[in-house]
């Protein structure tokens, strides 16, 4: 027997001993003991989105606290790259599990099946149907984002604020509609706002993917619609762009209701520049889904949970 084979046998022996120490009632701590030091890949849409970076940090903190190492894979908005990176990591045996924030959920169906066949548990942001699957799945934790509810919450908050302020004109800002759930968010914001504040007209809309273009577009819309005093911003960037544009124009908006929750937006909220922030509670997601992932690391053939990311409103 070669030296490497001795090492493998010894390793299996140690693993078997570790597993033998596990009790029947699996808890996060026992799972962590069994795979302590193992690597979890966090595959993200892009490392350049502060909000997702904050989720990555929360996941790293939670799993790191349980003895796991988290490595971040940047898909750079490319679904093919994301699938390839994950499959390479799984095939190389370098990861014990994965946490996936999909660029395009439907393109990851075969990747998830490959993970299941290799008994590598994963957490995915999305519901089973987003990946062409039905119900709970072995080795997969689903964390669905209810985009309709998210948009409705933003629209409701904006409507309440507009009515309270007696505003007659509003601006609606959002990111590109290629982002996941953005059409559902856009439609539900519009429906909720027009139902809640029928006397406030949306006089200008803009699509912007970065802070500078959001700021420029809001500045231009403000010239055309100087009485617009309500801003409904679906993302961090558009909200912060609006804050800067109003400040540059020497105006104070009655309401800026933002969807998002990145560090800069929360700082603007704390400084009183933003009226309310509707945010996905990634901290709660990291804990709930993280605990389930740790359970699956010990038992990758059991069904993972199907959760929904909670939504927080900070006023």
């Amino acid at each position: 027997m070669k030296k490497s084979q001795y090492t493998a046998v010894a390793g299996l022996g140690v693993a078997a001993l570790a597993l033998a120490g596990c009790t029947g009632t699996t808890t996060p701590s026992t799972g962590a003991t069994s795979k302590a030091g193992a690597t979890i890949a966090f595959s993200t849409v892009s490392t350049q989105i502060p909000l997702i970076t904050s989720l990555s940090d929360k996941v790293s903190d939670y799993l790191g606290g349980s003895g796991y190492k988290v490595t971040v894979q940047d898909s750079a908005f490319d679904p093919v790259k994301q699938g390839q990176q994950l499959e390479q990591a799984a095939n190389s045996g370098s990861i014990a599990g994965a946490w996936i924030f999909p660029v395009a959920a439907e393109s990851l169906t075969s990747t998830l099946k490959m993970f299941q066949s290799k008994k590598i548990p994963v957490v995915v942001d999305g519901g089973p149907s987003d990946f062409g699957l039905q119900g709970a799945q072995p080795g997969i934790v689903f964390v669905a984002s209810d985009f309709k509810k998210y948009g409705q919450t933003i629209g409701d908050e904006a409507a309440k604020c507009a009515v309270k302020a007696g505003a007659t004109q509003a601006l609606s800002l959002r990111a590109s509609e290629t982002a996941a759930g953005s059409v559902a968010v856009r439609d539900s914001i519009g429906a909720a706002f027009s139902a809640g504040a029928p006397d406030t007209q949306v006089v200008g809309t803009a699509v912007a993917s970065d802070l500078a273009s959001a700021q420029t577009k809001v500045s231009q819309l403000l010239i055309a619609h100087p009485d617009a005093s309500v801003v409904i911003a679906a993302t961090d960037e558009t909200a912060l762009g609006a804050v800067n544009a109003y400040a540059a124009a020497g105006k104070t908006p009655a309401c800026i209701i933002a969807g998002g929750g990145g560090p800069d937006l929360m700082a603007a909220k704390q400084a009183g520049k933003v009226t309310a922030v509707v945010a996905w509670d990634y901290g709660a997601e990291a804990e709930k889904a993280g605990a389930d992932l740790i359970r699956l690391l010990s038992d990758p053939t059991s069904d993972g949970g199907v959760f929904t990311t909670p939504i927080n409103v900070t006023k």
Binding site: Q48, L211, A212, L240, N244
Partner: peptide
């Protein structure tokens, strides 16, 4: 650009 938005984006 950073001065315009009072924020420097590393992306």
């Amino acid at each position: 650009t950073s001065a315009y938005v009072t924020t420097a984006s590393p992306g």
